[in-house]
Amino acid sequence: MAWMQRNALWIALLAAAAALAFAFTSQYVFDLWPCVLCLYQRWPYAMVIILALAGITLRKRYGAAPFLLLAALAFLVTAGIGGYHVGVEQGWWEGTAECVGDTGAVSNINDLKAKIMSTPLVRCDEIAWSLFGISMAGYNVIFAIVMAVFCFITALSSSRKN
């Protein structure tokens, strides 16, 4: 347990980086293009990376606890967005009308228009991939909650030591 407390910021950093790596690999290697809710779920992971790097840099001055608590909050935000996304996928409530297509690598407005028109729209209520009946959004909820609890517990235990 002491090893995890000493390295909690590194664990949060690696977990967030792994989540983003999984998302980008799914998108660019396996052509599982994200809907707008999928994109929103990525931003808190980027925030965790920034917080963890700041915490690693400033740990001697401020301790790890404030950065771990903020990271826990960011993990809870992505879990909340993921939970909302699961509800949209299951038809429990209406989702957003926004959709996302591939608009990268164009040189002029006509190429952009052609690319937009040829790219299929990605809807938030359609499950692109699942394993054991759990979608990627569902796995994001599970992963993010586990990481939020980890960050919260290690923050509390590290603040008690100080």
Rank of each mutant, 00 (worst) to 15 (best):
F75P: 00
T119S: 15
A114M: 04
A46F: 15
A74T: 01
R42M: 15
G87F: 08
Y45F: 13
G104N: 12
F132K: 01
D111Q: 15
D111W: 01
A72G: 10
L51P: 02
Q41I: 02
G80V: 06
P120Q: 11
A54Q: 04
P120M: 03
V88Q: 08
W129H: 12
G83I: 04
G80Y: 01
C35L: 07
I49L: 12
N140Y: 01
L73P: 00
A65S: 14
L69H: 03
G87Y: 13
A46N: 03
L53S: 03
E98F: 09
A64N: 02
A54E: 01
S118G: 11
W129Q: 09
H85W: 07
M47A: 15
S135D: 11
S130G: 02
W93S: 06
V106P: 03
V36W: 10
A46W: 14
A54M: 10
R61K: 14
A71T: 05
A74M: 10
A64V: 01
G138R: 04
E89Q: 15
I56C: 11
P120D: 10
W93E: 09
W43L: 14
T119A: 15
V141K: 03
P66H: 11
V48L: 12
A71L: 06
A114W: 00
I81N: 03
A64K: 03
I56E: 12
L51I: 11
R42L: 14
